[in-house]
Design a binder for these strands. Structure first.
Lengths: 390, 390
DNA sequence: TCGAGTAACGCAACCGGTTGCACTGTTACA
DNA sequence: TGTAACAGTGCAACCGGTTGCGTTACTCGA
């Protein structure tokens, strides 16, 4: 019975057009809606609560926030009543008058990487951010920024429309236009990554940031490869827009220089950031003359793609070619052979981002925090560990 | 002048505590803060816009939403002015009066799986949801529900506090307490997954839902394994709380029954949902007497863990033991050997969830949509494809 | 030429909280 | 015993939009 109805609706409603004409059951339909609406609007309001308690709105409001100017006994009575009546303050009303949203906006371009794949890196970070935000009673608003010239419009909407109290930014680029914008607007924000020197100096403004020492991390990673006897080490991916990519590339060159290994541009293929890119770039490297004996990838995703390419030409990862990534995603432990990587302390990063932003909201002076990544050695660079791969 | 006044107010308003005493650089500090705040509060309001245009607030409001009762010329003038003044309507104010938030709440327990790992499945779905929500002009509010008895409190806050217009629920359990709650509150919602029959019938209420045919999917998957000549097929993970797990298990048994393969409870290990669980459970199965020749895992994550366990005991995945997962995550293509799986059309699911919820918001009759998953055959079940693994 | 009709816009109430300030009744101190 | 200080509440404005309804100035048909 109900079932039949459901199916009938299913087909018509999909057609987003003149459904009303096709629906015979307008009566029931309308009745149901109004019923739902009634329940929706029946939620207890502060005025109702106050009336029930026999006090003024203002008294109730203050009692609920434990204002010491309200008598202890009154406070308890009102709180109990609020509990009983399932009172929940209307978020919009509170935000409007309080001029605070208790929402943090989180923006990342890589939220949807490529066609449909999600960026695992982003997810782990987002998880950490949400955890900490929940801790301090803030909600997270996810933003999917447009690309290109319309990019700023998303930020404008959030900033101008008071959708959030602050912004968490990542994927910083050189001369990132978002920074000056937020700066001019006086809108609180925190960066995952450091702004380029130019920008920071130009504004004489210490942006609050959290960063992982990409340069040092890359250097440690490449040194690890050199220590294993590899000398023809490729640098893979990252592109040339992101600051982090630049930093890691610098660290790569640092390590080479320190070991007196000449830099070979033919071993560096920077474009791309996805797993597929890693695959493609590596394949190209392998067919060239004098292929690398080790690959240092910008990210774990790229490294995984690289591994696939290496395996496809019949070479053994770890023995024939050492492959390492950067990020330390859970992913790296699942692949075969398990991936050597530079682990970023993402949990810590997420928590610090939130804390710094909250601090900025309170008007505290901005500060930067640099965290050290950690080398995680696994099978993909150690031929001796390869026996576990089968 | 006006600025100074405003600044004074700002600082005093900030002074929730005695931060003033502890900070030595109060001067600069205050200056900087107030500067930021000033910019923050200087955003053009509707009243200001109307004043600039020489019309009434209401006229401006209507002009911006293209109300036909406003003269065409006036509309254009005001829109142009709004553009020029970077006017953005205050979200809280609009929501308060409009009684609509244009926010969709998205709740999932598995957002943080285990200690720090993010659930890739969730992320791909979330990506799809965000994409579609952006399309129709809605924001997404991420919810991290508490576990245990306090679980409902999160929903209460969102529902009672008008944080969102509707809820997207997933990870449905048998007798899920969230469903009756939302139903009673008359709060719009949509489910990823079907509520159990009991609940749907008890409420005589056709919940709006989107689901993937788990039973049929599992059956197809297991039939694939049987077709390859496997007869001792293990069922791995999923636990017994989630409805999806139950459905997949039923599909598994369907396939066995259809092939006249006796069901063996010793081959079924249901607890757990993470990659680590897959590893552990598989290891246990392998050391038992009469280990399986194929493993059908509840999810890709579990399957990846299973593969690791298989490889660790020196067996070859695909040849010695066929392993397949369920979900069709990007992940499956990265592991070695690549994972056979049942792909869920997550992009479609995400889009439909949003559309159905929007429909519910408009008061349209709820409907259910069942999507068919798809078998993706890769190396982990095909010994002939194994040469690609090296 | 006059009343009805309509297009275009203004007025003011309202959404549901927050907050400065005025107003009581006590208590304590001179 | 008068009064200042203070604890405890109430009043009303305000946050920035939305919306029902009233008002004004025309146009048009009879």
């Amino acid at each position: 019975m109900a079932k039949t109805t459901r199916l009938a609706d299913t087909t018509s409603a999909m057609g987003a057009t003149s459904e009303r004409a096709t629906l015979p059951l307008t009566g029931t339909h309308d009745g149901e809606v109004s019923g739902a609406q009634a329940a929706t609007f029946a939620r207890t309001t502060l005025a109702a609560l106050a009336r029930a308690a026999g006090v003024n709105k203002s008294t109730a409001s203050r009692a609920l926030r434990e204002d010491s100017s309200i008598g202890r006994e009154t406070r308890q009575r009102i709180r109990a009543l609020a509990e009983e009546l399932h009172y929940e303050p209307n978020a919009s009303a509170r935000r409007l008058s309080h001029a605070r949203t208790e929402v943090l906006a989180f923006a990342s371009h890589t939220f949807i990487q490529g066609r449909s794949e999600a960026d695992p890196f982003l997810v782990e970070l987002l998880g950490a951010v949400m955890r900490e935000a929940g801790e301090v009673g803030f909600d997270i608003l996810l933003c999917r920024p447009a690309t290109g010239p319309k990019e700023v419009s998303v930020y404008r909407r959030v900033v101008g429309g008071h959708h959030a109290d602050g912004f968490i930014l990542m994927n910083l680029r050189a001369h990132d236009p978002r920074l000056p914008y937020l700066r001019e607007q006086g809108f609180p924000h925190v960066l995952f990554g450091r702004p380029d020197e130019d920008l920071a100096l130009a504004h004489r403004y210490p942006y609050p940031w959290v960063d992982v020492d990409n340069r040092s991390g890359a250097r440690i990673g490449v040194e690890h490869l050199i220590h294993l006897g590899r000398r023809r080490i490729a640098f893979l991916g990252g592109g040339d827009t992101y600051i982090a990519a630049h930093d890691r590339f610098t660290g790569y060159r640092d390590a080479l220089a320190a070991a007196d290994i000449p830099f070979d541009a033919a071993l560096c293929a920077s474009p791309g950031i996805s797993q597929e890119d890693g695959y493609r770039l590596t394949r190209d490297l392998l067919v060239g003359q004098a292929p690398p004996t080790a690959i240092f990838a910008f990210s774990d995703m790229l490294a995984v793609g690289a591994m696939r390419a290496v395996q496809e030409v019949g070479l053994l990862v770890g023995r024939d070619i050492a492959v390492m990534g950067f990020d330390g995603l859970g992913l790296g432990a699942y692949v075969t052979p398990q991936l050597t990587t530079i682990r970023q302390p993402l949990q810590q990063v997420g928590a610090l981002l939130v804390r710094l932003l909250i601090a900025a909201l309170k008007g505290e002076a901005p500060q930067g925090i640099l965290l050290q990544p950690e080398l995680v050695v696994r099978a993909s660079t150690q031929s001796s560990l390869l026996d576990t791969s089968h």
